[in-house]
Amino acid sequence: MNRGAVAGLFRKELIDVSRNRGALIPVVLVTAIALVVPFVVTIAVPLATAGRLGDDFELVRVSAIVDPDARLSPDARVQLFLFQQFLLLFLLTPTTGAMALAAHSVVGEKQARTLEPLLATPIATFELLLAKVMGALVPTLVIAMAGLLLYVAGIALLALPGVLGAMTNPRTAVLVLLLAPAAALLSLQAAILISSRVNDARTAQQFGVFIVIPVSALLVAQFTGAVWLSAFALTAISAAMMLLWGILAAVSVRLFDRETILTRWR
């Protein structure tokens, strides 16, 4: 692999994004929503209504799964449950990033007529696509991780005693350090695959909806208590996602038809 070429194109992607901050607005918005909504639900609403989370029998029952030894008060346990569940919202950040950045990556180069000189260089298709994936992944993950840091800081400041300590567990670590990057990588690769097969960015973004659906389904299933993904299950899902990414990357290289992109797209 020509690392210099990948690094060069990756650098181009970063410069491009840094000078086109508008492209990051969807990612920042989703991160902000993922950051604000949990605190509104767990802190602001109970304060505003003078109610207590522990008064909701159904929530107390469902939340038992996060504190099987009942070490926390009912209020703290429900808070812990909700903060754990809302953590999944951060999976949506890289997914949104995929649609905002990656969907535009190949088709955008074609529309700007910058793809032909790029394809005339010795860069291999795999290297080109890798640089594109990394160029979209890194800024998205940086934003997502910044959001997560603020999330943890907010919990440390506003949540009931014991909640932050209980959240610091292998499950959270797997979710943040494995699942989120794996989901991002998979989403980005899918978006880039789509971007290299359609001839305008809007179409690529519309296809991106299919990437959001599985994450949303996972969120809903978790909130209803129908599914509880343990650290082990999340690790397995992350591994499966990485495997799927590898397959998708190979498919992307195979389906990236330089000739069709150059001659058929207008």
Partner: peptide, 9 residues
């Protein structure tokens, strides 16, 4: 130009 330099190694 610098990025194309990288692309050509």
């Amino acid at each position: 130009l610098s990025i194309y330099s990288d692309l050509y190694g």
